[in-house]
Design a protein around this nucleic acid. Structure first.
Lengths: 235, 235
DNA sequence: TCAAAAGTGTTGTTGATACACCCATGA
DNA sequence: TCATGGGTGTATCAACAACACTTTTGA
């Protein structure tokens, strides 16, 4: 045994898990993907999706694996939220859990996966209590999402490729949980130069019909990089 | 063996470590506290301070322990930066490392501790290469510090209790790594209502002497809570 | 007397807010 | 014809950026 092995082996090892706070936007509401836990402890209670870290994968790989298994989607936007390591957080055994925060375009999410894992979308306003410290994670993720929404164009990650300005506004309203002034919203978002106006209108969601837009990927990337200040007066 | 034990035990365990990115401000420069590693692998190379998580402590406790052992200081400002878990990051063994970002008032830091652990302050501009992924951690911490400086009054955590406005400005300049306009800086910081002007002047650092100020803890807390926008034109 | 740093105000510009009416459409 | 939601413009105000000279003092 080498010196470093000796040294390292003096120290305890821990289970390392991952938990995913998965946001989606649908029916004008910000939603969270959760399920009923399938094993003890707390079997049957509402929980975030998660899993244990495997020996041959990095944390990001593991988190991506969980998202892929669950949604069938790849290239989902994901970032680390925080790592939770309180001693009694898992009543069964000590587990260090790395929480990841993900944004998925809900319209792409196939319901077949949903059934397989018992996944359920719940509106964040109607969210049931979750197990362990999962509620704390969600609260922190929501704050992160709000900050993110005010510093980079976020709609890209949560909306379908084509969308109307009223839809985009309702996304921001769902994230901020407050109403916005539609004239100021439109003025601001257009001045940012990230939207490409299309010819067609969406006639499904209103009688008048609203013009469809697309995000301009190039501008979006520039804005993400530089960061900017997206403030819209809340009403 | 209970069901949950059985389930949990199917999964591998990992060493969990902590690394601290410790910033201080001294001699007009933003500095980082590092040392030469005392064991293999990479013995003798520059490294962040860190240590392994113990079975009976939470992550925050462990990070606080490391800071206390190292600096003799308690109640240091500290927050999680990110968790690093790439497979080959530690060449000896797989280690999941939670990086913490800390701000210490460098004037309180006693040199005796420094000797015991071989701690060395290095200016971030003159930083030597660090082991493993520690450089990446520092880079991320610096960006975090810059964002933090533009959204809450940060001087509180890095300066002595009494300081002059030119000192405070030089702290911001060190963080942003660019010069600021002193009239605009003064105007902005005073309008924020966090400073209490004292009677005395600091005559050590200049001939004219500059008035001393103190932070108003109450206002500071309000601003931290609400967040604000601290933008000063960079020159 | 001079070098070095502290301190001080104004103006132009930009961006945010507040706010009300008309239009298009399908039921 | 009416209810619903889409779309548009302006005036006020607050905040930021740019910018140069005087004062104090110790060496």
């Amino acid at each position: 045994m080498t010196l470093e092995k000796q040294y390292y082996s003096e120290h305890p090892k821990f289970h390392v898990a991952l938990d995913s706070i998965i946001f989606g936007f649908d029916e004008g509401e910000l939603k969270l993907l959760i399920h009923k836990r399938r094993f003890e402890p707390a079997k049957g209670q509402w929980s975030l999706f998660g899993g244990f870290l495997k020996a041959d994968e990095s944390l990001e790989d593991a988190s991506n694996r969980i998202l892929r298994e669950l949604t069938g989607l790849d290239k989902i936007y994901m970032e680390e939220l925080q790592t939770y390591g309180a001693i009694g957080r898992d009543p069964a055994e000590r587990v260090i859990s790395v929480a990841y925060f993900a944004l998925i375009p809900a319209h792409k999410y196939s319901a077949t996966f949903s059934q397989q894992y018992g996944a359920t979308w719940v509106g964040i306003k109607e969210m049931p209590p979750l197990i362990m410290d999962h509620d704390v994670m969600v609260e922190k993720a929501l704050i992160r999402l709000q900050k993110m929404a005010s510093s980079q164009p976020i709609g890209f990650k949560l909306l379908p490729r084509e969308f109307t300005i009223p839809k985009l506004q309702s996304l921001y309203e769902a994230i901020y949980q407050s109403k916005l002034d539609k004239r100021n919203f439109r003025k601001k978002i257009i001045s940012m130069d990230v939207l490409i106006k299309l010819e067609e209108k969406d006639k499904i969601h209103s009688r008048t019909g609203a013009f469809l837009y697309r995000f301009d990927k190039r501008t979006d990337e520039k804005l993400v990089e530089g960061g900017y200040n997206f403030t819209i007066s809340r009403v």
